[in-house]
């Protein structure tokens, strides 16, 4: 015979109540161990979207490499958002679209009107005429003046003649305002 109250076995209800209490305590402990990364993820996603948006709409989005190294200049002006003509050592492209291949920065004579001494690059001229039409239509629909701006992004090691040929061709197509894109910081 047990006799004492302290040796009395707990009832089933008490056991279940104790299980519930312990479960709640364990749950709180386990919750506090996990780091809540959702706010951080939100923040990261917002920054990422912002960067992608701003980069895609800015002229600073220039893929530099061995074939395209921009020259440096001491000028301190804002980069232009005009139509981009990129002249690397291997190709000419307009707003990312391939136009003509170059051999070590020189336009092949067969691509120019008048051969080797010519200044007009035929495939570029065709494309730029289309661009002029598009730009004029957009300008008239938005009630703005067509300014004919072109941003020239060229490799610093290119022969100057190649740049002149591109300028001449753009000029012949109807563009008249050129901006040479450079990296800030020289002297």
């Amino acid at each position: 015979m047990s006799g004492t109250a302290t040796a009395e076995k707990a009832s089933l209800i008490a056991v279940r109540r104790e299980i519930g209490r312990k479960k709640r305590r364990n749950k709180v402990e386990h919750q506090s161990e996990d780091l809540n990364v959702v706010p951080m993820m939100d923040m990261m996603t917002i920054i990422l979207v912002f960067l992608l948006k701003s980069l895609s709409s800015s002229s600073a989005n220039i893929p530099q490499g061995d074939d395209l190294r921009l020259p440096r200049s001491s000028i301190d002006t804002a980069p232009s958002s005009a139509l981009q003509v990129i002249i690397s050592r291997v190709s000419i492209s307009v707003n990312g679209r391939f136009i003509a291949a170059l051999q070590n920065g020189v336009v092949d004579a067969s691509l120019k009107r008048g051969g080797g001494n010519g200044l007009l690059i035929n495939p570029l001229a065709d494309h730029m005429r289309e661009q002029v039409q598009i730009a004029r239509t957009l300008a008239s629909r938005s009630g703005q003046e067509f300014r004919g701006e072109v941003a020239i992004i060229a490799d610093r090691g290119l022969p100057s003649r190649t740049v002149y040929e591109v300028l001449y061709t753009c000029g012949q197509a109807g563009f008249a305002d050129f901006r040479l894109l450079v990296l800030k910081g020289a002297r």
Partner: peptide
Amino acid sequence: TVFTATIPVPA
């Protein structure tokens, strides 16, 4: 690394 500027070259 990309801080660009433009040199205006009017026709």
